[in-house]
Design a protein around this nucleic acid. Sequence first.
DNA 1: CAGTGGTCTAGACCACTGT
DNA 2: CAGTGGTCTAGACCACTGA
Lengths: 248, 248
Amino acid sequence: MGTTQLETVPEPKYWHLKTVLSDALDSEFAVGEILPNERELAARFGVARATLRQALEQLELEGRLQRRRGVGTTVAPPRVGVPVDPARHTWPGAPGDDWQPVDAVETDTVPAAVTRLLETAPGDRVHIVRRSRVTNGQPVAAELLYVPTAAVPGCVEPASAGAQTRARAVLQELHKLALDGQDRTVELGSARAEDAKQLDRLPGAPVLVVTTRYVSAGRTTAVAVSTYRADTCRLTFGESDAVAVLAG
Amino acid sequence: MGTTQLETVPEPKYWHLKTVLSDALDSEFAVGEILPNERELAARFGVARATLRQALEQLELEGRLQRRRGVGTTVAPPRVGVPVDPARHTWPGAPGDDWQPVDAVETDTVPAAVTRLLETAPGDRVHIVRRSRVTNGQPVAAELLYVPTAAVPGCVEPASAGAQTRARAVLQELHKLALDGQDRTVELGSARAEDAKQLDRLPGAPVLVVTTRYVSAGRTTAVAVSTYRADTCRLTFGESDAVAVLAG
DNA sequence: CAGTGGTCTAGACCACTGT
DNA sequence: CAGTGGTCTAGACCACTGA
């Protein structure tokens, strides 16, 4: 019948908008530059602010934009390559890693997913070490490291000691054990309120959740749940460090 | 002065809603079960539909829900663990990997990011092999594998051959080379229209983008850009395969 | 065809930032 | 304080699915 239907699929406005904005970012804006505010952009493109925001959200998700309440929308720098898989397999807190211990608490309530990985009973006491990872002065990740108290019996730092001191004590006890190996999973999540604050983001911000299992003496001895800012980070794995140079 | 200001931070409605729904999913719903439709849920919680949708979007991002237009919202099964780092370092298409070659084309226009990794000149001809990864009958990833024509001079499959045949031919030529190593990056992205169709998602859906660099004879010989559904996949890395069993 | 989720509008108010 | 992005509303219409 030869129906001349060129556009069977009407492209959503926000999708088209995203493309237009993305091209504009490439050609007309420099990193760090401030975009016009949302109300003006929406007016300029002849759409409702909600629609404009849908496009901006996608661009932020892809790491092209950075939005801060009360400030404005800026063009984001290229994502930072963050090495996740050190060539040498070492315990967390070994010299050379760029994590900062923050504090440590001992508790008997841990997420079910962690209990499963640690193969502990639901009521067992566990140390939780909080750590923070900073690259180029920017916080890129927050971490909760779970270590069953039974695995580090030598760790008897009193609660009166400084928070950071207790954290270091747990790590030092860990280092006395032989590390057999480790494995990891990566998945998408949304930042818990606590992590969000540490990462300087709003709650619910998209994050890459890296779960690392440390195996010692044929047993899972520690589990680290690391929460990376998905907008600013590109996780790098593998033997070669040459890959870290591809920023540009 | 003792101002009794318990809630300095008014929790956004959608955030609270998400928590409530999340708990309900744990206790009152089985995997695969259909939730009430959005209009009814919004009415039941006394919020606008847009607000309710904001909560559902987050839950879908976290892999708790699955929404399909024209059908409804269902409770999603736990994420599938997808092994990304085979113990043996092998070329793509080696026996044992669960990727299906789809087709192959030869072109001289590739994304700038890929050109940079391959260290090719902007006009150099490159094979693009499209592959698809299926797990449990579900498409979980789409891939574009870039191989400079110069790297596989023996590959002279005519365009008249079947699409899949040409794809296999490129892979077979690759296998003749010695593989020195590989490295990867993982970052968050949004599905291009083409990938979205292959993954049975809408354009813009969140995806985990895995970029693999294959090194041969001290040179980057191939680059694979694999796009995994972020809602249903948990990427697994590392030596132990025991981690794949943690689904529950 | 009826019912679902997806897109879009035009407003309002709030929380936060910097000056 | 003015200006920004974040939240929320109450509607409307569209695209898709399955009976």
